[in-house]
Amino acid sequence: MSKLEVKHISKSFEYKKILNNLNLYVEEHEIVSIVGPSGVGKSTLFNVIAGLLEPSQGNVFLDGESIINKPGHVSYMLQKDLLLPYKTIEQNVALPLMLKGEAKKKAIKKAEELLKEFGFEMVAKAYPNELSGGMRQRIALLRTYMFSANLILLDEPFSALDTFTKSEIQSWYLKVHKNLGLTTLFITHDIDEAIKLSNRVYILKGSQYDSLDNISIAKSAKNIDNFLLSDEFLDYKKKIIACLQK
């Protein structure tokens, strides 16, 4: 059984069809990307999976159970870090636990431990506006993880960062993903990022197509030195671009 199964999802707003009969799955411990141009309904699909939006048709299963219209089962992170400016870093990280009804002291303690584990204990008492963009994004990821390690949805989380910070945080995320045994579904319009991070890439093109192209990135490829500059990387990139233009 797959961790996440999206089956025959369609979604229309008024007269416009955004999603048309989409199927996809994510296995446990995988990182799966969905790439596609702006406006093809990536974020709509995410809102459906997060339980914030009801699809016109179809169903979403997490561990075999339907999670349609049931927010609170998967963790969700957006391009904006959305750290609450009026709370300290540790309070922000503790927030998901407090929303679940855990006592404040206990939640803060767990947040402190997590921050310490990742070497962020220095900023635990700081406010988000005192931190750099890359740092805030990492803290937001930790908060997402704190909510649930079951399935993490990332909606272009790194697209607002500069190239250097972005590359650094991508490597950091790969490490974190492995160490914590996460499962991630990742939206991006950056093809390089998709190839670098994922095990598989889905290509979303728009509602006139009713199936998703699916490209697997071989594990062996990622072990190549300078993978990002290799011919294999370029081959994957060509394949994805070809799919998008089809």
């Binding site: 997060a50 339980g51 914030l52 927010p71 609170g72 998967v74 963790s75 969700y76 957006l78 904006k80 959305l82 609450l84 009026y86 709370k87 927030l95 998901p96 929303l99 679940k100 909510f147």
Partner: peptide, 29 residues
């Protein structure tokens, strides 16, 4: 208040009261 913040808390399963307390109150102080 930032509607994305509200949506984030909703995705974490927050109820109306929690959204009021954690976002609307501090944002309007």
């Amino acid at each position: 208040v930032d509607q994305d913040e509200v949506r984030l808390l909703q995705s974490m399963g927050a109820n109306q009261l929690q959204i009021f307390w954690y976002i609307k109150v501090p944002a309007s102080l």
